[in-house]
């Protein structure tokens, strides 16, 4: 077993008789951006949810910097402080204002004071150009704005790795760009990220490594230059022909 910062080996996950993940092995090094590509239902989202312990796994090992993620005796709440997650449908808390959405985890999980948490949230909001929306309710923002807030809500906990589950799939096409720009910034700043995405152009530009999943198996992985131009596997080639 090699020792990436995030290391997954032999991961199995089933829902009833349906084997969603069948023996996934992968490593993510610090400051790397790994893009998971594949058709809907290929297991990308489930893989991310397993890394964040939102789904119990059936077999295999997930290690984060040498600490096991799953199994008995793992403090999932401590783990999740180190792993941020952003969802396809933003999942902002509708009863809280934008800034409260960002402040709640630092205050209630990290025990940060209100003043400090607010200052941090304001800095983050300014970074994505939404400082003037701090006191809005999430439902008054556009989809792109909501997703940007969701990203910095996760960043407010200073996670060591950020998981992003098709974060642009629910957006109108003209709003995708503003969200991808934030992600490019994060990648440049050295954030370790694992993304499930359908944005092939983005994957090509930003990814350190691209993993192609199909029917719960990791069919092929490699640098984007290789995967997108000369994929080794026939299945990858077929998928990319349809997707590009």
């Amino acid at each position: 077993m090699s020792h990436g910062f995030l290391s997954i080996s032999g991961l199995e996950k089933s829902y009833g008789n349906h084997r969603v993940l069948q023996g996934i092995d992968m490593q993510v090094d610090r400051h790397n951006v790994v893009c998971l590509i594949g058709a809907s239902g290929s297991g990308k989202s489930t893989l991310l949810r397993c890394i964040n312990a939102l789904e119990p796994i059936d077999a295999g090992v997930i290690m984060l910097d040498g600490d096991p993620v799953s199994g008995l005796g793992v403090d999932v709440n401590r783990l999740r402080r180190r792993v941020g997650m952003v969802f396809q449908s933003y999942n902002l808390f509708p009863h809280l204002s934008v800034i409260e959405n960002i402040m709640i985890a630092p205050m209630k999980v990290a025990g940060m004071g209100r003043v400090e948490a607010r200052a941090k949230a304001e800095t983050l909001l300014a970074r994505i150009g939404l400082a003037n929306r701090a006191n809005y309710r999430p439902d008054r923002l556009s989809g792109g704005q909501q997703q940007r807030v969701a990203i910095i809500r996760a960043m407010a906990m200073d996670p060591e790795v950020l998981l992003l589950d098709e974060v642009t799939s629910a957006l109108d096409p003209e709003l995708v760009g503003e969200v991808l720009d934030i992600l490019k910034d994060l990648a440049r700043s050295g954030m370790t990220m694992v993304l499930a995405t359908h944005e092939m152009g983005f994957a090509r530009e930003v990814a350190s490594e691209v993993c192609f999943l199909q029917h719960g198996k990791l069919v092929e992985k490699g640098p984007p230059g290789q995967i997108f131009t000369e994929p080794r596997e026939e299945e990858t080639r077929r998928f990319l022909r349809r997707a590009l």
Binding site: R49, N77, R78, R80, M85, N91, I104, K108, A110, M157
Partner: peptide, 23 residues
Amino acid sequence: SQVAAARSLGLSGFKTYRHIIVP
């Protein structure tokens, strides 16, 4: 999805109820 979002931020089950679900 609200529970998933809250738990992914590190809120415990109780805090998720207390701050996210019940309000």
